[in-house]
Design a protein around this nucleic acid. Structure first.
Lengths: 102, 102
DNA sequence: CACTAATTTAGCAAAATAGCTAAATTGCCA
DNA sequence: TGGCAATTTAGCTATTTTGCTAAATTAGTG
């Protein structure tokens, strides 16, 4: 599958988007991530492997546990490229504040 | 469903992302869009209704046909908000050219 | 080595997704 | 009104996704 498709499919799930937001604060082990969500460890593990498959996170083993880390360049790269392809004029630069919620 | 979820689910499908790119060039009727893809009219119609449900496109009837139009503010708004939430430092501004393909 | 903790892998069931064809709808025109 | 063109809606099937529990893996510790 193409990289951009893997990324957008990964971002389609709200749990996975929230995992990315948690990782923005700093790296976390699989168990620490699991503790933040109401779903089982194995389910989180699969979400993590999908995020990893899209290169949105990197993992490394640290003794007993596996630590995950955000890859902000991949997030900004792929999503940003799409954004500039579809709406080049109003990408980030020039974005108006939202009136309420769209 | 929440707006951001509808948007990212809509963007998860490659056909729908490509429809948005086609619409970037200017509005198109459902039939004109269908002609650009190898799948059936009804399938395109459903993709369009999902894009419309996420407010990524707007439709209007024009006589016999229905014309679709990109809503770049919604695209840039929702996706851009997510981007600034997850990787505020390297959002668009400051993005390095890609070395090859990530 | 045996035991425990952390995590992933396997296998299953329910729900969602995307495609198709056939039928319904909507608007135009004679 | 009848008929045609454009599009959507309905209903179906196959595939994918997401959750679960149970079992396997990997690393540290007595």
């Amino acid at each position: 599958m193409k990289s951009v498709s893997r990324v957008f499919k990964a971002l389609a799930d709200p749990t996975r988007r929230q995992i990315l937001q948690e990782l923005k604060e700093g790296e976390l082990s699989a168990g620490e991530i699991t503790a933040k969500f109401p779903i089982s460890g194995p389910s989180i593990s699969r979400h993590l492997s999908i995020l990893k498959g899209a290169d949105l996170v990197a993992e490394r083993r640290e003794g007993n546990r596996i630590v995950y880390q955000l890859e902000p360049e991949q997030v900004a790269g792929v999503v940003g490229d799409f954004l500039s392809a579809v709406c080049p004029t109003q990408v980030l630069r020039n974005r108006k504040r939202k009136r309420s919620k769209s």
